[in-house]
């Protein structure tokens, strides 16, 4: 095999090692690339800014630990933003693993802003059924969730006073890594009940939601770790997402280098052996 052919068919384990180094080194020695805030993230931020203190926001944690690096920082930033504006958070999850993650983010932010469980935030927990649960919540929240995630009756919690259904909720945000998730909230929440819906999604699924953004069905959206980093910038702080952007930048750069490198040798090879494709 000529050097061209050998380089074209590089052992993928070498690629794996280089990617590992590209991710680890910037985490250990940050570079400090500047992060610009994009419009969808700005719109989501403004949607929360426009709410009156005391408004209720549903944050639905529809993700699991595998997508935590991208979505958990969004969860944290949103919880902090809501509490800084004295908004009340009604947490829940269409994925069972999302519930403890949502709880952790709310507890962290509550400690920072002096908020208490049951008064300023609640975690209703998980219910199986996806879109069925969303329809149920739209009609009657206490009937769908008679108890919170820890088994306390919601009727005893001050935050749920007078909360019957979507009519008592000002904003819905779905932090979603797949299905059920944003689509269900948009279909029922925005499509059927006309509620304002925002989203936080993984980078790979963000392109699929641009049509919803354009059509106005989503008021704003955070896409991937970059979206989370941008929201952290708007909250005038840094978090895990901002710190991860350096590593992501270098990794992207390396993958682009691989592609160009491989194509260079492919084109050289083609010139030398034009019958070979």
């Amino acid at each position: 095999m000529s050097i061209v052919e050998r380089l074209e068919k590089l052992d993928r384990r070498l690629i794996f090692v280089l990617i590992l180094l590209a991710v680890v080194i910037p985490l250990v020695r940050p570079i400090g690339f500047k992060i610009e805030v994009s419009e969808p993230v700005q719109q989501l931020y403004e949607a929360i800014e426009s709410l009156n203190p005391g408004s209720r926001v549903i944050i639905s944690c529809d993700y699991d630990p595998s997508t935590m690096p991208e979505i958990y920082p969004m969860n944290q930033a949103l919880a902090r933003h809501c509490f800084s504006r004295d908004l009340k958070i009604v947490g829940m999850g269409l994925w069972p693993q999302g519930v403890p993650l949502g709880q952790a983010s709310m507890e962290q932010a509550a400690e920072e802003y002096g908020k208490s469980y049951g008064v300023d935030y609640v975690n209703l927990g998980f219910k199986a059924g996806g879109i069925v649960v969303v329809s149920s919540v739209a009609e009657n929240i206490p009937a769908t969730y008679p108890q919170d995630y820890a088994g306390r009756p919601v009727s005893e919690l001050p935050i749920m006073d007078g909360v019957r259904n979507f009519d008592n909720i000002e904003l819905i945000i779905s932090l979603s890594a797949g299905d059920p998730g944003v689509r269900e909230w948009v279909m029922i929440g925005q499509g059927r009940y006309g509620k304002t819906v925002g989203a936080g999604v993984t980078a790979v699924s963000a392109p699929a939601f641009y049509p919803y953004l354009q059509a106005g069905q989503l008021v704003g959206m955070m896409g991937g770790m970059k979206g989370a980093a941008e929201y952290e910038i708007l909250m005038e702080g840094t978090g895990t997402a901002s710190r991860g952007m350096d590593a992501q930048s270098v990794a992207h750069g390396l993958i682009i280098f691989f592609i160009l490198f491989a194509n260079f040798f492919y084109l050289v090879g083609r010139r030398k052996m034009p019958w070979k494709r």
Binding site: P65, T67, M68, P69, I255, I259, A262, Y266
Partner: peptide, 21 residues
Amino acid sequence: SSTMFALLAFFVASASYRAFR
């Protein structure tokens, strides 16, 4: 769970190198 998901980073690189011609 995170480890399995992280495999994607490596596989994207190897797939891109192999297939994007």
